[in-house]
Simulated scan of single mutants.
Amino acid sequence: MTPLRVAVIIGSTREGRMGDRVGRWLVERAGERDDLAVTAVDLADYDFPGSYPAEATAAMRSFVRRVDDAEAFVVVTPEYNHSFPASLKQAIDYAYDEWRAKPVGFVSYGCHSTGLHAVDHLRTVFTALHTVTVAGVVAFDLLCGEPAPPADDQLRRDVTVMLDQLGWWGLTLREGRAARPYTS
């Protein structure tokens, strides 16, 4: 079977962020599986406009193509003020139909929190976009300034559960989209 194309979206663009390290950690774990073809989509690599322009920019079109090409997503997000970053909301809003009928998993992190408020808010946003959000979540309770995510056995189990759920939904929805296009 063709591996499921999974985009790991790194949602923070702040200077000194932990998201790139958490994202790399996740890509390494997911890369150990032969049922997934994983790519990182780091929002810091996109030069998005400060406000929504009248016409889509090259960066916006590039991001939307990445979303369209993926069959499943894992969003890596910090928790800022009990929610997710504005950079992530901006990027999510650039695509619409491209998200539909695809599964989304979450990896959250926070300094003195695990980022679960951000995940709760993201579930609402992605439900409105007609995705399926998986129940399994990987949540890091990072200490401020910690250089990398811990290699904890529970986190590895959480990643396995989340990726297993993402894979099941991804393959099921792939077959469903092939048999009958999704409309709303």
Rank of each mutant, 00 (worst) to 15 (best):
D164Q: 08
Q165I: 02
G145A: 02
V76Q: 05
P85Y: 13
P85N: 12
K89Y: 07
Q154S: 06
M162V: 06
D93F: 11
H130C: 07
P103Y: 09
V161C: 08
L166Y: 10
S108D: 06
Q154M: 09
L143I: 08
G167N: 12
I92R: 04
S113L: 08
V161Y: 10
G145P: 00
V119H: 02
T77D: 07
A118F: 05
P150N: 03
H121A: 13
V137R: 13
N81D: 13
R156A: 15
A148L: 01
P150Q: 10
L163R: 08
V119K: 09
D158P: 02
D141H: 15
K89E: 12
Q154F: 11
A91F: 01
A91L: 09
E79R: 02
G167T: 15
P147D: 00
A95P: 11
L143D: 10
P78G: 09
A151Q: 04
V134F: 09
V159A: 14
V138L: 02
G170K: 11
F126M: 10
T160K: 11
V132C: 04
T114P: 03
E98C: 09
H117Q: 13
G105V: 01
P147K: 00
A135H: 14
V159R: 00
F126Y: 13
P147G: 00
C111E: 11
E79A: 05
S87L: 08
D97R: 14
E175N: 08
K89T: 11
V107N: 05
